[in-house]
Simulated assay, not measured.
Amino acid sequence: MMFTASLPYLHTERLVLREYRRGDFDLFADHLADPESSAHLGSADRPAAWRIFSSHAGLWLLHGAGWWAIEDKQTGQLVGTVGAFYREQSTVMEMGWNTYRAFWGKGIANEAAAAVLAYAFQVRHEPKVRALIGAGNESSRRVAERLGMRYEMETELHGKAISSYMIERK
């Protein structure tokens, strides 16, 4: 028996947000192995990166929400990932974004995250969305603030201090 999840494609001016594909894995693994790129996420070796990659894709089956690959419309190149998902014990949708280092500073995270936030509120009718941002991750904090998210509280995730940012649907 085969199971499928309906993963919506989201389009912005420059980007297509689509499903993960097997061919995306090398860039994903390289991103997680790069100490500078993964400084706020925590680095991962290739086997751990495969588990993360697979679980990101599998969230769509469990929750009907998960992670998208971010593809540049003009070049077809993979430039990062963005997600709207639930953690195991959470009832609040969480967002996350990662831009691959070669594409930092181009507004890709802002554009992709804005599309995902609109999807969460307009299509899924989520009442609120949270982003957990590691200490010192100023670029992600700026993305959250551009989205209209506001600092909520300090918390902990996997033993690390983390700031929670929240936005409610209007």
Results as ranks from 00 to 15, higher is better:
residue 3 F to E: 08
residue 8 P to C: 05
residue 10 L to T: 11
residue 12 T to L: 07
residue 14 R to Y: 03
residue 14 R to V: 04
residue 17 L to I: 01
residue 19 E to P: 14
residue 20 Y to E: 00
residue 23 G to R: 04
residue 26 D to N: 00
residue 26 D to Y: 03
residue 26 D to R: 01
residue 27 L to R: 06
residue 28 F to L: 05
residue 29 A to G: 02
residue 29 A to H: 02
residue 30 D to K: 11
residue 31 H to P: 02
residue 32 L to E: 01
residue 33 A to S: 02
residue 36 E to S: 04
residue 40 H to I: 07
residue 40 H to P: 07
residue 42 G to L: 14
residue 43 S to Q: 11
residue 45 D to V: 06
residue 46 R to D: 06
residue 48 A to V: 11
residue 49 A to E: 10
residue 51 R to C: 04
residue 53 F to Y: 13
residue 54 S to F: 05
residue 54 S to L: 11
residue 54 S to N: 11
residue 55 S to T: 12
residue 59 L to G: 06
residue 61 L to K: 05
residue 62 L to H: 08
residue 62 L to D: 03
residue 63 H to R: 14
residue 63 H to A: 07
residue 64 G to T: 04
residue 65 A to S: 15
residue 67 W to E: 12
residue 68 W to K: 10
residue 70 I to V: 14
residue 73 K to R: 14
residue 74 Q to F: 15
residue 77 Q to L: 09
residue 77 Q to N: 01
residue 78 L to D: 00
residue 80 G to N: 08
residue 83 G to P: 08
residue 86 Y to M: 08
residue 87 R to A: 00
residue 87 R to I: 00
residue 88 E to C: 04
residue 88 E to V: 04
residue 90 S to W: 09
residue 91 T to I: 00
residue 91 T to N: 12
residue 91 T to A: 12
residue 96 G to M: 11
residue 97 W to N: 02
residue 98 N to P: 00
residue 99 T to K: 01
residue 100 Y to K: 01
residue 101 R to K: 15
residue 103 F to Y: 14
residue 103 F to G: 04
residue 104 W to Y: 14
residue 106 K to H: 12
residue 108 I to D: 00
residue 113 A to P: 08
residue 114 A to I: 13
residue 115 A to Q: 10
residue 116 V to N: 10
residue 116 V to P: 09
residue 117 L to R: 12
residue 117 L to N: 05
residue 119 Y to W: 15
residue 119 Y to L: 00
residue 124 R to K: 15
residue 128 K to D: 07
residue 129 V to M: 02
residue 132 L to D: 04
residue 133 I to P: 04
residue 134 G to K: 10
residue 136 G to T: 07
residue 137 N to S: 14
residue 138 E to R: 12
residue 139 S to E: 05
residue 139 S to M: 03
residue 141 R to L: 03
residue 142 R to Y: 05
residue 144 A to T: 01
residue 144 A to W: 13
residue 144 A to G: 12
residue 144 A to K: 07
residue 144 A to P: 03
residue 146 R to K: 15
residue 154 E to L: 15
residue 157 L to Q: 14
residue 157 L to Y: 14
residue 159 G to S: 11
residue 159 G to W: 12
residue 163 S to P: 00
residue 165 Y to E: 08
residue 166 M to I: 15
residue 166 M to D: 10
residue 167 I to H: 05
